[in-house]
Amino acid sequence: MSILVNSQTRILIQGITGKQGSQACREIISYGGGDVVGGVTPGKGGQEVEGLPVFDTVFEALKVLGQVDVSMIYAPPLLVCDAAFEAVEAKVPLVHIFAENVPVLDVCKILTLASEKGVRVLGPNSVGAISPGEGKIGSIGGPNPDAVFSRGPVGVISKSGGMCSELGNLITSGGFGQSTVVGVGGDLLIGTTFSDLLVDFEQDNQTKVVVAFGEVGGSSEIEAARLLKEGKFKKPFIVYLAGKFAESLPKDTALGHAGAIVGLEATMEQKIKVLRASGAIVAENFEDIPTLIKKSI
């Protein structure tokens, strides 16, 4: 078992003819898990990418291909809203948005429509998700996911794509594999949050422990802590929080991720306090994570 993606996941790629879209397509095919069935690029219907059909709209694509499990959006930031609306209207169960720099108003509209239609969104600015040995969506792990990811009992969550791989690398070298590794994206508003994933990981038999990479700004860690307190997540939860240095900067200072804003909603100290009180394990040092995994399972 795993969450979000497995070997049978049927995938559509919106923006499949672009540089990053076609590369993601090739990478998923070569990984051998996750089944890309076709793509969409407005105006390029009738073309092929890696032997797969390209359509002008999601509607046309699904008419020919049948329903898919995931649509991955690799469109330029200002076109993401329209692309996502198409996928949401077509009720594709999971819409993954890779693009960075999507305006927050557009994201708000996408998420509102998605929740009305019962569609789940991963991202924006999400690198994707991988269930090692089974399949992947997005660009996670790049051309060679096996270099850092391996199959096992650890669920991993991070806003940052780079840190997904870094955590995979650290945990694999520490002797543990991963059930599913998910990059949720670093934007102010995101479709799938830490706590949404904790609920999924709780249900997943393969997952014995979850590791999350938290950041300065936002409330995802506080929300996760609430879930633990309410008893909705009972497995060990290990969190590392990055960006302590930024606490000395003025409030509202924005860092690497659009959602990493100093003083937004909770300070680092508050996060650590609330997490500890909820029973989460807060890692002091990033490299301590494998040891903490060992202790907890």
Binding site: M163, E166, E215, A242, G243, K244, A254, L255, G256
Partner: peptide, 26 residues
């Protein structure tokens, strides 16, 4: 797109929104 100057003497070229925080903290 984010460039903040500090008083120190080690120039930083970090990569990635998450990792850059880890780099600075370290």
């Amino acid at each position: 797109s984010k460039f903040i100057e500090f008083d120190g003497d080690i120039a930083i070229l970090a990569s990635g929104g998450g990792a850059s925080l880890l780099v600075m903290d370290s």
